[in-house]
Design a protein around this nucleic acid. Structure first.
Lengths: 115, 115
DNA sequence: TATGGATATGCGGATTATCATATATTAATA
DNA sequence: TATTAATATATGATAATCCGCATATCCATA
């Protein structure tokens, strides 16, 4: 992946929010991201597919759920940028709201399995 | 400028090449960038205008020439990303060719003023 | 095998990006 | 003032992007 392609991945608000949450949480399934961002599931799914196709994310199915994570074999230059980016937006209200919705969802006992 | 907007600025190959050269050289006029990238002048001009409108670049006219530089009042988080980016592409053949064309142009005596 | 939850994809439409070409503007100078 | 170099903008065509909605696929389990 070239730097320009990498930046294009991060140039969409929805994709950036997904990547930031994954950067912070390590591994999340589609329904967790859907709940966290509070947007329609097909929208999340399509953006995740793009990030996977570009090599920025890896997916792994676990039964019914598909988990996504940042590809650990990304080019070395990509990681510092991801870290800088997370640091830059961690205090944004949008990110904090996303993170909050993720926490709430995860602590609901009846949703503990996932969704 | 939001991080997503910032990344969109860098998501186009032409814009990224301009920003990388400016990151390395500090200040360049339009005709220098046009020569370095070896693309039509209107193409360069339009991309520079976009980067200026987004606040990533500053322009300053000096007589006949308009110089562009990276806006020193950019958000703090932007600079580490720009540095990481330059480090990531400095060894790319495209960047080296751009840089080479810039040097050649600058050393031509009859073009010393600018173009 | 039938059902339901989780995820992915097909499709049409609206918006936006990018480009090449031609032309306008600005500033220096003859 | 006429000319020329440097830069910006207008125009029209093509392509890319993003979205909502509907539907398909995949998997677990009754």
């Amino acid at each position: 992946m070239t730097p320009a392609q990498f930046f294009k991945c991060l140039s969409d608000e929805t994709r950036l929010r997904c990547v930031a949450l994954l950067q912070k949480q390590g591994k999340l399934c589609v329904c967790e991201l859907t709940a966290a961002l509070d947007v329609p599931q097909p929208k999340i799914s399509r953006h995740l597919a793009l990030l996977r196709q570009q090599g920025l994310l890896l997916d792994s199915r676990e039964g019914q759920w598909v988990y996504y994570q940042i590809n650990p074999t990304l080019s070395g230059w990509a990681f510092p940028i991801l870290e800088n980016t997370l640091a830059a937006i961690e205090n944004n209200s949008t990110f904090q709201a996303d993170f909050e919705r993720l926490q709430v969802m995860k602590t609901k006992p009846e949703l503990a399995v996932c969704c």
